[in-house]
Write a protein that binds this DNA or RNA. Structure first.
Lengths: 338, 338
DNA sequence: CTGAAAGCGCTAACAA
DNA sequence: TTGTTAGCGCTTTCAG
């Protein structure tokens, strides 16, 4: 038994396919009698409309695409949760494109708009080149960026410079002078937050007239383990920092591990501040800069849904706040260290 | 400028649409000369084939659907990571259906097979009724269950009875006699793991000739907060337990919180064991029963991909191991408590 | 090798 | 109200 089509239903009910289509789509221009006949036929044939056919006919897919890098990253997952919560409640399906390599990134960014398989596109934590944006614009595919900026696109963002500034300033106000910043690679063309937070870091330093020391900035691939290693390097310095600002909570966890391995007391011997406020940060009592990750996903997808119904005259930019969350990994430096 | 179709390309290249199609699909029966003409035309028109049309024509979607409950649940996310890792590396797209309510559950399970929008279906942590399975079979849609059982379907599972048994036995061997089990509701028809682990719990008790006490089993909705509350209730008992086996790590975290609120020392005053071994469990040093969540996603999707190419004579059942991970939340009861 | 034409299952415009 | 028909863009015989 092959699946029933609209034609089978029409035959079974003794009506035309158009009528069946109308019934399916709730078109009121159908008499109650025939509607019932059709409904019965649908029932006996256990018919469900073929979405692919409908999509082709309609020219719409009722699907939104979400491109995310590193689905393994907790902050990305948290944003995605927000996205899922609104998409699942809408009439749209969601297809997920996970970018782990440059190749896939290019493939998705190139193909997804052209293939016409989604009605809207949400791009999370991925910096786009002008060329890519141009292509997107040509395809007329409604798009919104979450955690990435571009003058021509709708976006929801956060002020990472300010975030870096606030984090560093918190440490300074606590009395620290030897403050390190550990982060992802600064020269990654697709990662501007890492640079922005660095800028905030240096701004705060400068404001407090603390000279920036190259050896206090470490960079590596993203990850807890890398955070751990960088911390050890830092602590091996002749004049080790008394506080570390980690680009992400994940890296901050690595810092904590390193400290534990050296039997150092946090925050007495070493202060640590992270960024993001992922869920674990709370359990581990990590002082951090909260950015509303879940909320960013929610706002981003809502903005997308909205932009799919009406065109905005110019790109919308939603700026989400950030907030210092003081917990138990930061304190004044022990006097001996100063 | 509307998107170019295969017909435009054909005209531009001065060939028939069939030829263009052949070129696109790498059909070797095309002369090098015409192939080049077509390629040029594709280039100048910036043509990308419309996936929806291709799908309709092919009768395949190159898409696999994944139905998960509570995307907010860390263990589900972890499984999903495994799924994403293999799907993203395949030629399939992945559409995600998040089930938060009974209504959506029914809707997805009913519609997804019929709509023919996916070539395969992965169902995670969702128990199916016979009726639902029957429908699935009728639709001939390749399906695999992850973390759920059914005699007629492919599946990857874990022995939860054994898990519950091992967890409890660990506590018993440490010397505990007053052991509580906190969990999700036992009578949830769609959650058999909760019952299985309970069975394992009672088995271990029985084997050690420890009578089961009703007041030592608490149930509530899933969540950290609920775990916290149940723990307080337990500790308010005239004869409180010395050890708690939590259905999930999430709930175990709640136990830890409650203990901290009472300034109780874990594991000296109270032992805690969780289940799953989600990432946080490691950071928080929670003793737990590891089930290979990520791996379950990987195996499940591989099995699905495989079952989409060749039919199995009978349903495959992959059973993943479990493992006691001893960390720092379990120890012998303090003598005073005995 | 290549072009023409017949679908894939559905929607919507057009008649009736 | 309803049936008929022309697409939606692509693949795939079937001739040539």
């Amino acid at each position: 038994m092959t699946t029933a089509t609209i034609r089978d239903v029409a035959k079974e009910a003794g009506v035309g396919v158009g009528t069946v289509s109308r019934v399916i789509n709730g078109n009121p221009a159908v008499s109650e009698a025939t509607r019932q006949k059709v409904l019965d036929a649908i029932e006996t044939l256990d018919f469900t409309p073929n979405m692919v056919a409908r999509r082709l006919s309609l020219g719409k897919t009722q699907t939104i695409g979400v491109i995310v890098p590193y689905f393994t990253n907790p902050s990305v997952v948290e944003r995605l949760r927000g996205v899922v919560s609104v998409i699942a409640a809408s009439d749209y399906d969601m297809v997920l494109f996970d970018v782990e390599t440059v190749g896939r990134r290019e493939a998705y960014l190139h193909d997804v708009p052209g293939r016409r398989q989604v009605d809207g596109l949400l791009i999370v934590s991925l910096e786009l080149t002008n060329q890519e944006v141009e292509r997107l614009e040509r395809s007329k595919l409604p798009t919104v960026l979450v955690d990435a900026r571009h003058p021509d696109l709708n976006q929801v963002v956060v002020d990472n410079v300010e975030g870096g500034y606030i984090a560093t300033k918190h440490l300074i106000e606590l009395g620290h002078r030897r403050i390190a910043y550990i982060s992802d690679f600064l020269n990654d063309p697709f990662n501007s937050p890492v640079r922005d937070r660095f800028t905030g870091y240096t701004m705060a330093l400068e404001e407090a007239e603390i000279p920036f020391r190259t050896e206090y900035h470490r960079q590596a691939r993203h990850g807890r383990e890398e955070g751990r290693k960088m911390t050890h390097d830092l602590l091996d310095l002749p004049e080790p920092p008394t506080a570390i600002f980690a680009y992400s909570d994940t890296q901050a966890i690595g810092v904590l591990e390193a400290a534990r391995e050296r039997a150092m007391n946090v925050p007495a011997d070493l202060s640590v501040i992270g960024f993001d406020d992922i869920e674990v940060a709370e359990y581990l009592n990590i002082t951090t800069i909260r950015q509303f990750l879940y909320e960013s996903g929610v706002r981003g997808s809502k903005l997308l849904l909205e932009s799919m119904t009406r065109q905005f005259s110019k790109p919308k930019c939603i700026s989400l706040p950030i907030k210092l969350i003081k917990r138990r990994t930061t304190a004044a430096p022990s006097s001996v260290a100063v």
